[in-house]
Design a protein around this nucleic acid. Sequence first.
DNA 1: TAATTTACTGACTGAAAAGTCATTAAGCAT
DNA 2: ATGCTTAATGACTTTTCAGTCAGTAAATTA
Lengths: 210, 210
Amino acid sequence: MICEAPPRKRRKEARPSELTAAALGLFVEKGFAATRLEEVALRAGVSKGTLYLYFDSKEALFKAVIQEGIIPVVAEAEAIAARHAGSAFDLLERLLENWWARIGETDFAGIPKLMIAEARNFPEIAQFYYENVIRRGRALVGAALERGMASGEFRRMDIETTIEVIIAPLLMLLIWRFSMGSCQSKQADPRQYLAIHMDILRQGLQHPRV
Amino acid sequence: MICEAPPRKRRKEARPSELTAAALGLFVEKGFAATRLEEVALRAGVSKGTLYLYFDSKEALFKAVIQEGIIPVVAEAEAIAARHAGSAFDLLERLLENWWARIGETDFAGIPKLMIAEARNFPEIAQFYYENVIRRGRALVGAALERGMASGEFRRMDIETTIEVIIAPLLMLLIWRFSMGSCQSKQADPRQYLAIHMDILRQGLQHPRV
DNA sequence: TAATTTACTGACTGAAAAGTCATTAAGCAT
DNA sequence: ATGCTTAATGACTTTTCAGTCAGTAAATTA
């Protein structure tokens, strides 16, 4: 059997995003150091040399993966918060729903695991991610909490810590999917997971009964 | 200045645990693939050749790191649950406290991040960890929840999902410390974090007000 | 159709790190 | 002390992979 190489195509515009998409998948799956650039290129349907036409180095590729992924989503969440009218809990719920729809159900879902695994090896990229995604995401949740506490809808608690406790289960849901998730047969249903989390929060953030 | 090599010492008994301790630290910090065995040996005060006297390969070293770390702690938690007498929420609280004292405040604290980052690359080790740590840990929390629901202390919710929502913030606390933690100046106080989490849970798991 | 440009290729290079082994010396036995 | 066993060493070999570059062919222009 003769395997001919597939015909070359010249597609200057499409290459960078095809390459970052392939790289994201492999980085999430195997980690940055364990991913071979040849494999990234292969998955993008291109040769290794082509990869170096568009990215100076492996680290530059990583930086591009992170930068192009997630920042538009944060901006969108800020817009949602800005024009929200209902209760504070309602806003929380909408933020988390949106986050799930825009991250959890897309290819970006692997970014949190990737960022967590590599933060120490790439402090500059971690810093960028922290400033542009984490800090802004937390600020949104924090503002919702403050509003709810000011209006009497929520009881008073330490804001910074409560933010983390609220966000943690969402992050774990994704992290799990790309790590130990393959060990268990039936994956928890994300929608139900979110519902129960919000349910506990709805009641847990209230003023205690007298 | 003349740097003499420090004198050799023969310490067959102590080597394996010194090596796994050094390896754990570096694996957590840099990831498995990015850690050089020469650096592991150096940190353990030994040469690379010595490392290979005790471990057949880099992967064997990784396996040893995971196996020796955390299983005794799970067994201890099971003992605590077995002899517990008070309320179900009290048991939950004691389990989480114990977990924090035995994992969160020890050198094992990095294991969850390590396991999450490498699970996909070492499915066999991940499976072992899942069966011996995760499944058993979850079973404990699940039993406490069931007891509380049976006695009427908690409202009825899907057990499996609730377990995850309860555990997630604890895992994130550790994962954070070994990843993005270095990006923010003031780290959240773990004790306060746990207190708020338990506080939300105490109220969130109750029967709703009528 | 021929000439020109440039996106693309893949064999090659050098460096870095895993893994090996002949040699050395610490500690024990006599 | 002297010889013996074996833990420990570090220079060496092998493998792997990021990064390079001379050449190829797809598109575009004349």
